[in-house]
Amino acid sequence: MPVTSYAARSAGAALERHERESDPLGPLEADVRVTHCGVCHSDIGQIDNEFGITRYPCVAGHEAVGVIEAVGDAVDTDLLPIGTRVGVGAIAGACFRCPQCLSGRHNLCPNRDDTVMRGDRGAFTELLRVSDWRTAYPIPDAIPSEQAAPMMCAGVTVFAPLIRHGVRPVDRVAVVGIGGLGHLALRFLAGWGCDVTAISTSRSKEDDARRFGATSFVATREEGALAAAAGSFDFVLSTVSANLPWDDYLDLLVPQGRLSIVGVPPEAISVRPMHLLPAEKTISGGVPASPTETRLMLDFAARHGIGPQVETFPVAEINKAVDLVRGGQARYRAVVAFS
């Protein structure tokens, strides 16, 4: 069966229609008829070969929502019936037998199937195949498809650290960057019950940040603003893909506080030992979430009415959506509608 996707044929090229033949379904595989797909900065990285690993033609995309159309013989259709509305994120399969998978950390599986790194099998497509049906997550009725799509990567990326690192409703938390990740982090943390401070370079997004749930705001270009907040936070979540003065951000933490980095800086993260060691502070990274964390995120978002602010584009305007994200102009997530 022919499948229509949208592919870049070289680094930075515009996306074009790309046809391929669908292989027979494996026993644990499932096909999702895609209705919506978010455009993430890491999709741009693949299209533009920022990481030096892209295979062309490149079909990017890893924030898909659609309907289960077909399943393999070993799929439990009591749990995933044909016609179920599901989301598929950055991980479309794992081995389910390594130590990481057996302890529920499928996102750390060394043999995981990364949706956006499959060459011409990414989610900018009308029909997306997952290599294991357990990575297709039923979407609660309360979440519209265009909002659910970005939550499959952006949403779980900022939600999972709250679970992993035991962030409490009584904690004071700062979110660095008010963009596609940061605005969702503010909404989740406000729903979590935390006192939330937004940190950005200027005050241009202050009104938005407060609307998303921030109770305080720090503009780092204002002289002394970052230093004045030193020692204020139990947890700092950095969502920006930029080099930061990391020592200054460690100084924001209380003793034994944690700096969680989920944005991808272009250069090495460097800190001075005396900013890290004496107060037993911690720096941690994050990758897309486990199945358990993803289901918890969807349930929490549905119960609290949390979702991203999106701009939706018909598939005929997919390159407009890609260019918006490439230029950092999305407010705050771009979503492509396939139907």
Rank of each mutant, 00 (worst) to 15 (best):
M151F: 06
M151V: 13
M151S: 09
M151Y: 12
M151C: 10
M151N: 07
M152I: 07
M152Y: 07
C153I: 02
C153D: 15
V156G: 03
V158Y: 01
V158P: 01
F159G: 02
F159I: 05
A160Q: 14
A160K: 14
A160S: 15
P161G: 04
P161H: 02
L162Q: 08
I163N: 00
I163E: 06
R164C: 02
R164A: 11
G166S: 03
R168T: 06
R168A: 11
P169T: 06
P169N: 07
P169W: 08
V170S: 15
D171F: 09
D171K: 07
V173L: 11
A174M: 13
A174R: 09
A174Y: 05
V175T: 13
V175A: 14
V176K: 08
G177K: 12
G177C: 13
I178Q: 14
I178P: 12
I178R: 13
G179W: 10
G179H: 12
G179N: 11
L181T: 02
L181Y: 09
L181C: 07
G182I: 03
H183A: 10
H183P: 14
H183W: 10
H183C: 11
L184F: 12
L186M: 11
L186C: 07
R187P: 02
F188L: 11
L189C: 08
A190G: 13
A190D: 15
G191V: 05
G191K: 05
W192V: 00
W192L: 01
G193W: 01
